[in-house]
Structure formats: structure tokens, C-alpha cells
Design a protein around this nucleic acid. Sequence first.
DNA 1: CATGAATGAGCCTTCATTCAT
DNA 2: AATGAATGAAGGCTCATTCAT
Lengths: 187, 187, 187, 187
Amino acid sequence: MTTPLRKDAARNWERIVAVARGLIDEGTPLQLNDVARRAGVGVGTVYRHFPTSEALLETVATPCLEDLAAQGEQALADGDPWQALVGFLAHTIEAQVTDASLSPVTAAPTDALPRTTELKLALWSVGERLLGRAQDAGVVRANLTPGDLVPLMCGIAYAANMHGSTPAARTATAHRYLTMLLEGLHA
Amino acid sequence: MTTPLRKDAARNWERIVAVARGLIDEGTPLQLNDVARRAGVGVGTVYRHFPTSEALLETVATPCLEDLAAQGEQALADGDPWQALVGFLAHTIEAQVTDASLSPVTAAPTDALPRTTELKLALWSVGERLLGRAQDAGVVRANLTPGDLVPLMCGIAYAANMHGSTPAARTATAHRYLTMLLEGLHA
Amino acid sequence: MTTPLRKDAARNWERIVAVARGLIDEGTPLQLNDVARRAGVGVGTVYRHFPTSEALLETVATPCLEDLAAQGEQALADGDPWQALVGFLAHTIEAQVTDASLSPVTAAPTDALPRTTELKLALWSVGERLLGRAQDAGVVRANLTPGDLVPLMCGIAYAANMHGSTPAARTATAHRYLTMLLEGLHA
Amino acid sequence: MTTPLRKDAARNWERIVAVARGLIDEGTPLQLNDVARRAGVGVGTVYRHFPTSEALLETVATPCLEDLAAQGEQALADGDPWQALVGFLAHTIEAQVTDASLSPVTAAPTDALPRTTELKLALWSVGERLLGRAQDAGVVRANLTPGDLVPLMCGIAYAANMHGSTPAARTATAHRYLTMLLEGLHA
DNA sequence: CATGAATGAGCCTTCATTCAT
DNA sequence: AATGAATGAAGGCTCATTCAT
């Protein structure tokens, strides 16, 4: 139940997040001073909205995480447990490879924003359920546990990022690696 | 044709590398000033031996890389192409997961020491030959290329590090992930 | 269109420039750390106001350069072309000999502040016009070009500084040397 | 009465001076470590021969100073006092403009080597005698004192160095400036 | 709420000089 | 005599964070 922001405060918030998004996309390290300057806003303002750079980073990543969670929920409605799981995982790594804000957030052992923790849990839970369904249906081996999903997706994204230099190449490689892995898991 | 170091210089070199090894193991960032202080040596001495922290890092990583390369060569002598490849890859991720100096060196697009480049190339070449043999023998699918090996090993190590907190757990997980992947690649 | 500084910022700015002025006068090399300490200000503050020591040096020199430029403009109003030129040149070397911030700025092939470049150009232009008038009036030989003025003034200042140790002696010597030179140029 | 150097020591001495000469010519700052490395000699050796970089610099400058002193002595034999003085001064600035080791030595208020002091005095004395002869002969105004000669030559060299970028241009300019000055002094 | 000036710890690096070998 | 490793003071600069305005 957050108090709605004043109109000008909201505008600043938007600007800051937009600038941060841009910096992350171009691989520039997130420095709050820098963000403030580019957003045409005082440092203090940035600090008020985002006490740490992690908070800002997580804010940038949030929409993408929400998207993934939503897609996971939809996947649960899919009649084919195998397709549902595979589709969800494919979405996941694609996001990881495409959106540079994701890896650091996923890898961080601790979160700056409660919302991030919430979303991570949600994703974990969706994965668990999708995996459970698939294993119950006998289409995925038993030696894969819910806790493996996130690390494996991150690992594949990491590998794909090492391999390819253009976003397109990275996406293609990520899918290839995912397929290899899934073939080893398909029962 | 490196001139052998004077005895005192050698002692300092050893100390510095040992301190660096310790810092890396405990996850402390490698700062040359810090290294100097802990090694009980002037900053200048560290800089004389290692012009950059990358050079020091690579020096720490070198023995491990040499080991891997040697094991790879031995694997080539193995009569079973599948076992040879699998064994080599297992050694590789185990090293990555065990020795914190390895990942940054492997991931770096450029090397500080020529020796590092040499070793990386050697490892790449060994991997290529082991993979080639296995594919020629028809035991590994064709959709895996030599260029995939390094990224995949790094990715698995990354995943295993995310998953487990103790070295032992990480090693076990890494092996499990490798096995999953290999099952998908076994022809 | 410079935004006027906040009151406290302005006070720091003044302090810093004052300290720099003092250091230059006593021949101490300008080191921003040192300036900060003496001004009772954080290093960062100095760096915020003056990104390099050259910028600070030029800031110190600016008022003097502005003065010279103004005097040059006034000289252009003088009815006697010879007196106008001589007067301007006399002011110039006097300044060079008196104010230690000037020589390094004049000698530098490149400027840190746009304002400095502006002022140098203005001075060059005034000199050119004064010389042109004098040559047109036939009171100065033709073998002197506008480009000679700055080097010659600097050279005379340099010579006067070598010769005398007290400011007064240096000023006197500078005038004497200027006179010698002008006698060789008077037509 | 210096003890003659051992043959190898002499060879090192030569090498060091030659390297220093080169560095000065190319405008590189004289750092004894650097000199040692380039000369293929230990730092200690350089320090043994030249306790400070000034000593080395002066050693490099010495032959040129000796040359000037010799030319001054010859000039004293010239029947024409004006020509003798002018020729000597011309040689002097030409040397200053051509040989980068000279200005710092001439400008330094204190010398590292006794030989340097000796040579400076000799030059001063020659100048004084040449000037005296010319003033006695009534061809040079009285308002020029012996103590002015060195500063003026240095000042002209300084001016010429500011003006021209190639050695040839600098030499030409230096002569032009000298001529201007002499015209003002010719009686 | 917003601003952005100020802070200063902290890291990096160079270089003159010494001294054990 | 020569060597060159070692030293560490000294200076340069950045950046996360605070707080007066």
C-alpha cells in the first residue's frame, strides 16, 4: 500500500528508471551520481527514490520478472506438461539473454526490494509446479529438482553470453543450449 | 628464456602469489596495494612483479590451467573416445568450481600474460580434438561444436556456484549438471 | 549563461582560488590535493570546481588577462600609434614579470578553459591591430609580425626573471629590455 | 685530477651519457632509472657516475658549453669588436635553440658539477670582455651591462622556441630576434 | 520534496633512492 | 664496480553518501 507519488515525483521516478534502463542496456555501470546527471535530477532525488543502486537495478528488472511470472501462470494452463515446461524455460533464458538487468538480480543472494523477493519466489513456485506436473506425467526425469531450474537457466544464459556477441546470436545459442539440456532430461 | 630470479626476489614473488591465492580463495577483490601490505612487501615490489592485478590473477590461475591441459593430453591417449571427453570435461568443471581464480580468467576476452593465452589455446585445442574423436566415433551428436565447450563448462560452473554454498556441494552439483547435459549429447 | 553559484559553493570557490593564487605567488607547484588541504576543503570539492590543475591555474590568471585585454582596447583609442603600442607592450611584460600565473598559461599550447582561449585570442588580436596601426603610420619596421609579439614579450619576461631577484628589479629590467628592443624596431 | 676510469667503467659512462643525450634530444624527461634501462646498465651504476639527474644533464651539456667558451676566446682575437660580439652572441643563441640540454643548465641558479660553474663563469667573462671592447670602441651603447648578456640570450632562445616548431625555423627566428635587439644596441 | 555541493576514504600508480648481492 | 630488487612517500583521481539550502 504505497502512498501514490506526487505528480512531479512520479515524473522524476520515471525519468530515473528510464535513464537506468538505458545505462544497463549499454553496459555502463549504474552509478547513482551518473544516473542523476543524465536524468537531469539531483543526486538526492535519486537516493530518495532508490536508496541503493541495487534497488534501482531491481526496479528496472521488475517488469520483466512480472512478465515471466505471468507467462509461467499461463503455461500452467497448457494441456501438454512437457510443452508447458519447455516454453516457460525458453521464455526465461531468452529474457536473461536479452535483458541485461536480469542476470545480476537473479544471481544476487539477497534483494534490495521486497517486490523482487516476491517475484523471485513466484517464479520459483511456478517452475516448481511446472516441473512437478511434467515429472508426474512421466515426461521429465526425476533427477531434476525445482531448485535446479533457476541456476540452470542462469548458467545457460551465462554460456550463451560468452559465446555470442550480438543479441541475436546469443538468443540463438541460448535456445540451442537449452535444447541440448532438455534432450538429456526428456524421459 | 626467463632469467631465473634472485633468491630474495623469488621469495617475494612466492609470498605475493601466495597472498593473492588466499585473497582469491576468500573472495576478496585483488588490490595490489592490499596484496603488498599483506605480503609484507612494498607496493613497488608487487608492481615490479605484476604490472596489473590481471597479471597476478593469471599467475595464480596458471598452475591449474597447466594441470587441465596436461590431463587433456592424457585423455587423448584414452582408448574410449566418450570416456576421454567426459573425463576431460568433468575435470574442467571441477576445477572451475573449486578454484575461484579460474572463472575470471576464462571469461576474460583478453589476457595479461602470453602464457595464459597459450594455455587457453592449448585447452581449446585439446577440447576440439577430444570432441572431434568422439564425433568421428559417432558417440556425440554433431550439433555440438568445439566453440561450445568452454562456454558450456563455464555455464555449468556458474550454475553450480549459484546452487551450492559449500565447495563439496558445488562440485557434486556441477557433476550432476554435466551428466544431464551429456545425456542430451550422447548419440 | 553560467548559473550563479550557491553562496557556500561560491565561498569555497573563492577560498580555493585564493589559496592557489598564494601557492603560485610563492612558487609552490599547484597540486590539487595540497590546495584542498590548505583551503580546508575536501579534494572532491576542488576537483568539482577545477577538473585539472591547469583549469585552476588559468582561473587564477584570468583577471590579469582580462585586464591586459581591456588596456589593449584602451590603447587602440590612443591617438599616437607608437605610444599606444609601446604602452600596451609595457603593460604586458610588466604583468608577465609580476604575476607568476601568466607565463605558464601564455606558454601552454593548449588551454583548459574556453575563457582562456578567448582571452588569448583577444590579446593576440589587439596586438595585431596595434602593430598594424604603427606599421601603417610608418613608425615600426616591417620585419616584425603580429606572431612575434607574444614570444617576444614572453622572452623578455623570461630574461628579466633570470636577471633580477626582487619583483621591483625584475620589473625595471623588463622595461629596460623592452626599450632596447623597441629602439631596434622604431623606424 | 680525477683518477682515470677503468676501461669498463669508462664504457658505461659513455653509454649513459649517450643515452641521456638521446633522451634530451627527443624531449623525454631524464629519469635515471630510465637511462639505466636504456643503457643496459644497472641503476646503481648510473647513480655512481651521476649522483643526480642534474649532474648527468650538465655532463651532456658540457661539450657544448666548452665549444661556446672556445669560440668566445677566438672572437676576442677578431679585429672588429662589433663583429666579434655579434658573432659570439649568434653562436650562443644558436646553441641554445639547437641543443635542448643548454637552457635548463643555463637557467639553473645552482650547478651540480664544478665544471659547469667554471664554464658558466668563463662564458660570462668572455661576454664581459667582448662587450667591454665593443663599448670602449663606442659601437655598443652603455646601457647594456655584462650581466644582461646571458639573460638576453636565454630570453631570445625562449622566444624563438615558442615561435617556431622545427629546429630550422627556431634557428631562423632566433637570429631575427637577435638582429632586432642588436639594432637597438648598435651605437 | 528536490537540489547538488561537499566530503574524504580509498584505490591506483610512479619514481627517486638505497642497499644486499 | 656493477647490479637491479626493494622501498614507500607522494600524488592523482573517483565515487558513494550525506546534508545544508
